[in-house]
């Protein structure tokens, strides 16, 4: 498990590689509590966003179980009119949640930047 400092540093690296980075957090899936956060925009409420996204991931996992899908959930992508949100499962208990500006980024760039550094969060 990475330390909080390592988490913040890793998110910093993603930020560098990702034009349009808004905010990101490493989240404990069970509780929805954040293990590390970094936001470029102060008004972005990462604590709340992380909490509610943990619920979404749990729901998705439940759906997969109900459908008896023998697969693992790797990531979830949400496209808003002006933002891209990516949820990347790091291990069974934690996920990275990231928001980026859609005008200056695209899905491929977001995925690429996250995948490049995700291992350091495990």
């Amino acid at each position: 498990m990475a330390s909080e400092q390592q988490i913040t540093e890793t998110i910093g690296k993603i930020e560098k590689d990702l034009p349009g980075f808004i905010a990101a957090s490493l989240v404990d899936l069970d509780s929805g509590m954040t293990l590390g956060v970094k936001a470029k925009v102060d008004s972005f409420d990462l604590t709340t966003a992380s909490a509610f996204n943990s619920e979404m991931v749990k729901q998705k996992l439940k759906i997969m179980e109900a459908l008896k899908l023998d697969a693992t959930l790797e990531d979830m992508l949400l496209t808003l009119s002006d933002q891209i949100h990516l949820i990347k499962l790091i291990n069974p208990g934690t996920f990275l949640y990231l928001a980026a500006d859609r005008a200056s980024s695209n899905l491929a760039i977001v995925r690429n930047a996250v995948n490049k550094h995700a291992d350091a969060l495990g």
Partner: peptide, 11 residues
């Protein structure tokens, strides 16, 4: 500190 979520309730 308030954060996270438990059965739809903030913690």
């Amino acid at each position: 500190y308030t954060g996270g979520l438990w059965n739809g309730h903030r913690i």
